[in-house]
């Protein structure tokens, strides 16, 4: 089975994006492809610089890496224009971190970026789990407002909302997939049972978590081959429009 990691973020060390370390970890865990976004240094400020690094990495390792753009919603119309440009250049989605970027998920501030994503069929990944700005029902509210955009609920809202709000929030909006990284196995088993494997998207949360641990965790849930195929591969190829 080909494994795809739908959210990893290479470290930025010594003025360089350390894609070599990321690829090594992917190899050790048997992961063929990762969708990457810029590290925290570029999430709030210097978005274009971060996106340039990601695009360069994707172009250098086209067989292993795909990319998401980071754009701070506070850039307004200029940010929307920039996002469109990065998507046109080959990045495949938008990465949001409401805590670092300083906005509430439900704010209209985000709409211009989401309209760009809707127009281009680009998914939106958001870190979720931190009150008061990034909670599951807030993501569901945004997802209901933008039903043609697919959203990824980051880190299964680890920690406090993981076992409580994730499933009911996802039931409000069918256009949400769940990233199970960082969350504990019993909660993930509950997501699979309640939402179906078609809505669980394998992500590593690298470097916040470790590839091998995240792969082992999913494999140890006792799921069948078809369910694992969906979680590790099929959901990602459909979402990011990757070759099967």
């Amino acid at each position: 089975m080909t494994l795809i990691d739908s959210c990893a973020r290479p470290r930025f060390t010594g003025d360089l994006l350390d894609t070599a370390a990321l690829l090594r970890e992917m190899d050790q865990a048997g992961i063929q492809r990762a969708v990457i976004a810029a590290p925290d240094e570029f999430v709030c400020l210097h978005n274009d610089e971060g996106n340039r690094l990601i695009l360069d990495a994707v172009r250098s390792h086209a067989d292993r890496l795909s990319g998401m753009a980071v754009v701070n919603p506070w850039h307004g119309a200029a940010g929307a224009k920039a996002l469109a440009g990065w998507l046109d250049k080959g990045l495949r989605g938008l990465f949001l971190n409401p805590v670092r970027q300083g906005f509430l998920l439900t704010e209209a501030l985000l709409d211009p970026l989401l309209e760009v994503c809707a127009a281009r069929g680009a998914p939106v990944y958001s870190t979720i789990g931190t009150p008061v700005v990034a909670m599951p029902f807030q993501l569901a509210e945004v997802a209901r407002r933008h039903p043609t955009v697919t959203f990824v609920l980051g880190n299964a809202s680890w920690t406090d909302f993981c076992g409580y709000d994730v499933v009911p929030a996802c039931r409000q909006a069918p256009n949400i997939l769940v990233d199970p990284s960082c969350a504990i196995g019993p909660s993930i088993a509950g997501f699979v049972e309640a939402l179906g494997p078609g809505r669980i998207l394998f992500c590593s949360a690298y470097p916040r978590s470790r590839h091998e641990m995240e792969v082992t965790k999913i494999r140890s849930l006792g799921l069948g081959p078809a369910e694992l195929q969906a979680i590790f591969h099929d959901n990602a190829t459909a979402l990011w429009r990757l070759p099967a």
Partner: peptide, 15 residues
């Protein structure tokens, strides 16, 4: 409320 987590947490610390 959570069972069989020991191996996971031990692996995490060891990692």
């Amino acid at each position: 409320f959570f069972q069989n987590l020991t191996a996971w947490y031990v692996a995490k610390i060891r990692a």
